[in-house]
């Protein structure tokens, strides 16, 4: 009896295969959207962006490109927060142990967790572009002025890329810090600190020109990034996205889980 059981269990463990990565992405995405944080944050981001976009069209000018770009004022704050909350949720709720019991190769979970905030950001961008046309048309009609439908494809693509960089910087910092309030405070302080550094001196401005994502990505939003700009963008991404992500992944893999 016992020997039969023993042989059947070893047969099972040999025959079973690992969890396919697409399944991990699928589950992590569902986990992001089935909790209040994911739902509320996505909705709040879109609603606030629509608010500022409408305000721009109303008080400034109903140009569809301008309406799209002004959303950055909201997105630059909320997308890093979304990235942070998406990856710190398991640690705030103590559910990491349950997740790692099902997939003990933790680095695969870290990698799968990159996707939901990126998907949410892509959806948000798509919704906002569509909404920008509606707002522009509606506000122009209401104000009785002509709408400007000109789209700058390079600037719009740049806006999309910047949004991705922002959310990934949040993901990376969240993975490194593993604590949402601390990570969000770091983001808030660093954006204030960079604006001080940039105006403090020429040296400060030079440093910000290489390391501050807000500064380096500005040419993308203008839709005319040069090779020099791309170098600066790459350096700032390496420092604010790649480095914390790699260090964070190491930390998650080595950490003892409660």
């Amino acid at each position: 009896m016992i020997s039969r059981t023993a042989s059947s269990t070893s047969a099972i463990s040999i025959s079973s295969s690992s969890i396919p990565f697409h399944r991990l992405i699928n589950v992590e995405t569902r986990k992001f959207f089935d909790t209040l944080v994911g739902q509320v944050l996505t909705v709040v981001t879109i609603v606030l962006a629509i608010g500022i976009m409408t305000g721009f069209a109303w008080f400034m000018e109903p140009t569809v490109q301008g309406v799209i770009m002004i959303s950055g004022a909201v997105l630059s704050i909320l997308l890093p927060a979304m990235g942070i909350l998406a990856v710190t949720s398991e640690w705030s709720h103590g559910t990491a142990s349950t997740t790692f019991a099902v997939e003990p190769r933790r680095v695969r979970i870290v990698a799968a967790k990159l996707f939901p905030p990126v998907i949410a950001t892509a959806l948000t961008c798509a919704v906002l572009v569509a909404v920008a046309f509606v707002i522009t048309g509606a506000v122009a009609a209401a104000r009785g002025v002509a709408a400007d439908w000109t789209i700058n494809p390079a600037a719009t693509a740049g806006w999309f890329v910047v949004n991705m960089i922002l959310v990934l910087s949040g993901v990376a910092l969240g993975t490194l810090i593993l604590n949402a309030p601390t990570a969000i405070i770091i983001v808030a302080i660093s954006s204030m600190a960079w604006s001080l550094i940039a105006i403090s001196s020429t040296a400060g401005a030079a440093i910000a020109g290489w390391l501050d994502i807000g500064t380096t990505t500005t040419p993308l939003l203008d839709g005319r990034a040069t090779a020099d700009d791309l170098e600066r963008i790459t350096v700032s991404i390496a420092v604010w996205v790649l480095l914390p992500l790699i260090l964070g992944a190491l930390r998650v893999v080595r950490r003892e889980v409660r």
Partner: peptide
């Protein structure tokens, strides 16, 4: 089952565990 847990493929199919009933969202 003869392996370190982390080396099991899809360990949930072989090992059921409950360490902390509070570890649920």
């Amino acid at each position: 089952l003869g392996s370190r847990y982390a080396e099991l493929h899809n360990p949930g199919r072989h090992v059921g565990s409950l360490l902390d009933a509070g570890a649920v969202h």
